[in-house]
Computed example of a mutant assay.
Amino acid sequence: MAASELQHEQALKKFLDARPELCVELDNLNPLLAQAKGETLEQFRDERLHEAFEAEAERLGLFAWELTLKLTAATEEDYQAQRLEVHKEVAEMAGMDWLEYCELYGLEE
């Protein structure tokens, strides 16, 4: 079960709440930059927020969906269980052997 849209929105909120400086930066984006990209200021802001979220996930050595789970899981155990479940789904969709997949991504079951 991949992270839901609701989980992702909750994770973005937690992420932003923990970074007041990013919130200020996002609230003060140049509207001309959004216009130049053919986007509304809200779309442009959302894109910058998602970029910051993905950059933080990368910095932590995670996929963005893993950071979403990490920020929304009730406990570390819940996070690990959900993370493994999603990885299993990905391996299955890719038609990969689970042990081979674990080795490729450094997972321990």
Rank of each mutant, 00 (worst) to 15 (best):
V90M: 03
L12A: 12
Q80C: 08
E54A: 10
R19S: 10
A18D: 15
E85L: 10
R19I: 13
K88T: 11
S4F: 03
Y79V: 04
A73E: 03
L41R: 03
A57P: 05
R59M: 04
E109S: 09
E103D: 14
L60D: 01
E56H: 13
C23P: 01
Q43T: 14
E92G: 07
W65F: 04
L22T: 00
E5R: 10
T72F: 08
M96C: 11
A3L: 05
Q43A: 15
A11V: 05
L69V: 08
A57I: 07
E58V: 00
L49D: 03
A18L: 10
W65S: 12
K70E: 07
A2Y: 07
L104K: 12
A3M: 03
Q80S: 05
Q7L: 13
L60F: 07
G61E: 06
Y101E: 14
E77I: 09
R48I: 03
L71T: 04
P20E: 09
P20A: 07
E77L: 11
E109Q: 11
L26M: 15
E56K: 11
L49T: 02
K13R: 15
H8A: 10
L33Y: 00
N28G: 12
D17E: 15
T40A: 03
L29M: 07
G106N: 11
D27L: 07
R45F: 07
E54S: 01
A34N: 02
Y105R: 11
A91N: 00
A64E: 04
Q10D: 07
G61A: 09
R19P: 04
A55H: 05
V90C: 05
M96P: 02
V86F: 09
T40L: 02
